[in-house]
Amino acid sequence: MTTTASTRRQFLTLLGLSAAAVSCGTSASGASGGGRTRTLRYQGWAGQVILPELAEDLGYLEDVKLEWIGNTISGPQDIQSAATGQTDFGGAFNGAVVKLAANRTPIKAVISYYGSDKDAYNGYYVLADSPIRSARDLAGKKVGMNTLGAHAEAMLDIYLQRGGLSEADIDKVEPLVVPPVNTEQSLRQKQIDVAVLGGILRDKALATGGIRPLFTDFELLGAFSAGSYVMTDRFLRQNPDTARTFVTAVGRAIEWSRTTPRDEVVARMTEIVKRRGRNEDTAPLRYWRSYGVAETAGRITGKELQLWIDWLSERGDIRRGQVSLADLYTNDFNRAGQAGAAKPASPVPAASKSGS
């Protein structure tokens, strides 16, 4: 498939419009009839342990339970599910969060959950003998990524723009959707020219050898929080205590993962994946390094969202002033690190809990 700058803009537009069209008619609460709930429906990622799952296993969610309804490979799809009430929270790259809010979808970013640092980053990899050395070499080339209109495509656009490419040349670069578990293989079989790889999939591919980085998002922008979990305004109004428990637990899990020896974190994640019985490969977990969240306990500063407000405005995807930064996020539910908010995590993997 060929993707031009125009179709990228159309994708982002459809992202916002589709969610906005249905968000008013569907309950965003996990309880039937819009009542209060202590159960949070969510989507996971195959072979990975997301922060809420880690928080539940550590006991930080207390009496709040997670209900897994399936997996996703797309942040934009995940937050659309939250906006339409199919799930109670979802996470995506901050540009997708901004776009959703720009179309009057009543959501709030409540905590950062992933980002880029020296250990956790997305790299754009080519084969070791590839002639591609710079942005200008990408015209007419295929770049494989997990989804369009999200973090990976935004980083590619910034790289191409900084490389001095004209709009016409940028239009010649072809972002393609490739399932993350197949991206490395697609590169090695030369079905794509560049593979976007992050986390355990990146480190596993690097350990195999034969590839080299063209650039990384960490090199491009430095350390930054890249994505946020969102909840609807309705859910936050109806379930403030549940939201507070959830957000605080995720913040505590972020800090636990920073301060705990890496081998212990990996061992715990491995046990979580084994216990949930979804026929997943645990081997890639040994490559885990960091969630990459920049701020303490995932608190949102605003700058990680303003970056994408500016980027989308420059592209013409949203109008200037269409999104109010102050209305886009809140830290009010994040009590991680405050007095009385923390209890010690169990020193060994906890018993399996519902939905994790």
Rank of each mutant, 00 (worst) to 15 (best):
T2I: 02
R8L: 14
L14P: 00
L15Y: 04
G30M: 08
L40G: 12
G47M: 04
V49P: 01
E56Q: 15
G59N: 04
G59P: 08
G59S: 03
V64R: 05
K65A: 15
T72C: 00
A82T: 01
Q86S: 11
A92P: 02
A96K: 11
A101F: 06
R104A: 13
V110I: 15
V143C: 09
A152N: 14
D157K: 02
Y159R: 05
R162E: 07
E167Y: 00
E167I: 01
D171K: 04
L176W: 01
T183M: 14
Q189E: 13
Q189P: 01
I200G: 07
I200A: 15
I200K: 11
G209C: 13
T216P: 03
F218W: 14
S225N: 08
T232E: 10
T232S: 15
L236H: 10
P240H: 05
P240E: 04
T242D: 08
R244K: 14
R244I: 02
E255N: 03
M269H: 14
E280W: 05
T282Q: 11
R286C: 05
G292P: 00
E295F: 04
E295W: 05
W308D: 11
I309H: 08
I309T: 11
E314F: 06
R320K: 15
Q322N: 13
V323A: 15
A326F: 06
D332F: 07
R335C: 11
